[in-house]
Computed example of a mutant assay.
Amino acid sequence: MSRSLRHGALAATATAFSIVTLSACGAGNNAETLQIRPDNAATSVGTIKIQNVNVLTQPEGGADGTAVVAATLFNDGTEREVLEAVTLPGSDAEVNLQAADGKGPIVVPAGGQVIIGGKGNASAVIENSGEAARNGDVQQVVFKLSRTGDVGLGASVFPAEGFFEDFGPSPKAEAPSPKPNATASETPSGDGETPGTPEGETPGTPADGAGAEGAQGADGPQGDTGAEQGAAR
């Protein structure tokens, strides 16, 4: 290799090394280029970061029943934030909020986080979910915080299946099946009559003619014949 070629190769190597070094220094340990961003909707305003936001509907594409908003809220500030409301602009859907313990508001502690959706976590339930966007659409979601104010972003709408199964709404309750009606086998035989009783007769009453025969035995011809025989003697 000639002397000029060796110098050119060394210069190119030095330049490439300088670019890599400067890029690494510019990135720093906390640079956005080194962080893994979630695939789901995320945004930040001031000290509040909201990640993994989705609207989850009934599994198997069911249109009826409730839906939920799933998200994770981070608070990098020194004072707590209270999630006062979640709204879905462009729809009349109402979102009911509930803390993880079922009491009080949803609080994002200072220097902490709160998860919305999933067993044991806080919840944001969309009661009239038919007003929300359909599966596959993007629904605008606004989180109203006590100190930061409104933080909005577009969230994807998915059925609560696969990865989202544990974060979705409770399955729609099925209507109870009607009780079976009384069948013919439960109805007494004989159209309400007492079994074993001839038609038109009362249980325990002698059949026709029995009373007449008894009367004849007392006052009939046989009794008269006995009286006449006694007189003749």
Rank of each mutant, 00 (worst) to 15 (best):
E193V: 12
A9C: 05
L5R: 14
G168S: 07
T66M: 10
E186P: 04
I48R: 04
G77S: 11
I48W: 04
S2H: 08
G136W: 12
T194R: 14
A41V: 03
N75Y: 00
T202K: 15
Q222P: 00
G28N: 06
F163V: 13
N135G: 07
A210V: 06
V157Y: 02
G214F: 10
L153R: 14
T57N: 08
A212R: 11
A71Q: 03
A132L: 08
N52K: 09
S123N: 06
S189D: 02
G26V: 15
D64C: 11
I126P: 08
T21I: 13
P203A: 01
Q51F: 06
T13C: 14
D208A: 15
L5I: 07
D224L: 14
G217T: 10
I106A: 04
G149V: 03
P171A: 07
G217S: 06
Q139F: 00
Q140K: 15
Q113R: 14
T194C: 06
E161I: 13
E131I: 13
R37G: 07
S170P: 02
I19P: 02
E32N: 14
L145V: 04
K144S: 08
G136I: 07
G190E: 03
V20G: 08
G61A: 02
P180N: 06
P178M: 10
E174V: 12
V108F: 04
F167V: 03
